Computed example of a mutant assay.
Amino acid sequence: MYCNYAKEHWVLPEENPPVDLISCARTNAAAARYALEGLPNKVLAAEYQMLPPDERPLADELVKM
Rank of each mutant, 00 (worst) to 15 (best):
N16T: 06
L21Y: 12
R33P: 01
A35I: 08
W10Y: 12
N16Y: 05
R56I: 15
A29T: 14
N16S: 14
A59E: 09
L44F: 10
A32P: 00
E55V: 05
E37V: 04
C24M: 10
A45P: 00
E61C: 12
K7F: 00
I22Q: 11
A25G: 11
D60C: 07
E8G: 12
C24F: 11
A6N: 00
A6T: 01
S23T: 06
M65G: 07
M50I: 14
P13M: 05
L21V: 04
A59M: 08
L21A: 09
G38H: 04
P13A: 07
Y34L: 04
V43I: 15
V19D: 11
L44M: 13
T27H: 04
Y48V: 10
E8P: 01
P17I: 03
V19M: 06
E37M: 10
K7L: 01
A31M: 07
P53W: 08
Y5Q: 04
M50Y: 04
R26M: 07
L36K: 02
E8M: 13
P52V: 03
A6Q: 00
L21F: 15
V19T: 12
Y2F: 14
A31L: 08
A32K: 00
R33L: 15
Y34S: 15
A46S: 09
A29R: 04
L44K: 08
L21N: 07
M65P: 01
N41A: 10
C3T: 00
D60N: 13
A45Y: 08
I22T: 10
M50Q: 09
P57K: 07
W10G: 00
L62V: 11
E47W: 07
L62F: 11
V43K: 02
E47T: 13
R33C: 06
Q49V: 10
V19N: 12
M50C: 13
N4S: 13
T27I: 10
A35R: 02
D54K: 03
R33K: 11
E15A: 12
L39W: 02
D60V: 13
K42A: 06
D20V: 03
G38I: 01
E37I: 02
